[in-house]
Design a protein around this nucleic acid. Structure first.
Lengths: 143, 143
DNA sequence: AGGTAATAGTTGATTTTGTAACTAACAACC
DNA sequence: GGTTGTTAGTTACAAAATCAACTATTACCT
């Protein structure tokens, strides 16, 4: 380059976020993938239902910002594997109330435990104050 | 839930990173997508060549941690669109030296400018010290 | 009430990614 | 110098994501 070029890709925030996100997902991914044959979206749906209780596909999509077709297919797979049940909302028969089965709840609890441990491990070498800053800024960046 | 459940998905680091990464990518994505018909991997390849100069597909893949098939396809598209040229490395005829054309360089410079502005805008409401912390931790999380 | 628009969710077609197997060139070793 | 093992990159096939069109139901509006 003949010109000044001090913009390094390694400091471009969207790029850094992506690299960190991918790296930090890999190890955890193995758990829901190998142990329960789940995809990321399926895990997220499971997690939402486990953590926040019964809700509709739409609500999950809004909370997690997942497109409705992705949610729809994830719900289908989870239902096929008997991790959740669907029943028509009698007040609005377009939508369905989704609820985890015992098996789904068990999977959720298992994965939640793994996630907690994994999260702790990820930040274990960092200064707790820095971690607080990290989470705060990430939350704001996520919008 | 009848049990104690204080693990919130919103504080699970891989999840937060993903949400922040996606959100922060959207606005910038439009530029390389609409203006140059590029995909994310193509933009990254372009960026590496523009920022660091001529190199091989393998080097790009290592630096950016992109799988070689993805790099291969991105290089193909960039070559089709005359953003880069490939010539066999005479010392090792398995690999190719990749180099941006004038058009590629122009696109790089354009997008680099947009990226710089965008990065600045993303952090403009944050305390600079917090931003420094953020980048430092992200770099470590990216491994 | 009747017609139009909006919404929840699904499905199908297209695009993109991921995985594995492949080719061509090089390296190492005897 | 030939066999075996690696490496750079491509290609083919399968899996998954995206986008648009669709069904069924509800809301709105006059």
């Amino acid at each position: 380059m003949s010109e000044k070029d001090d913009f390094d890709l390694q400091y471009f925030l969207p790029y850094m976020l992506n690299q960190a996100a991918e790296e930090s997902s890999i190890a955890f991914q193995r758990h829901y993938k190998n142990r329960y044959g789940m995809l990321r979206t399926e895990w997220r749906v499971l997690f939402h239902l486990g953590r926040y209780g019964e809700m509709t596909a739409k609500e999950i999509g809004e909370r997690a910002r997942i497109h409705k077709t992705k949610v729809s297919r994830a719900v289908q797979k989870l239902a096929d594997r008997r991790f959740l049940t669907r029943k028509k909302d009698e007040n609005d028969r377009r939508s369905e109330r989704l609820e985890l089965t015992q098996a789904g709840l068990a999977a959720y609890r298992d994965l939640r435990g793994v996630a907690q441990e994994y999260d702790a491990k990820l930040v274990s070498n960092f200064d707790p104050e820095d971690v607080a800053t990290l989470r705060r800024l990430l939350a704001r960046l996520a919008g």
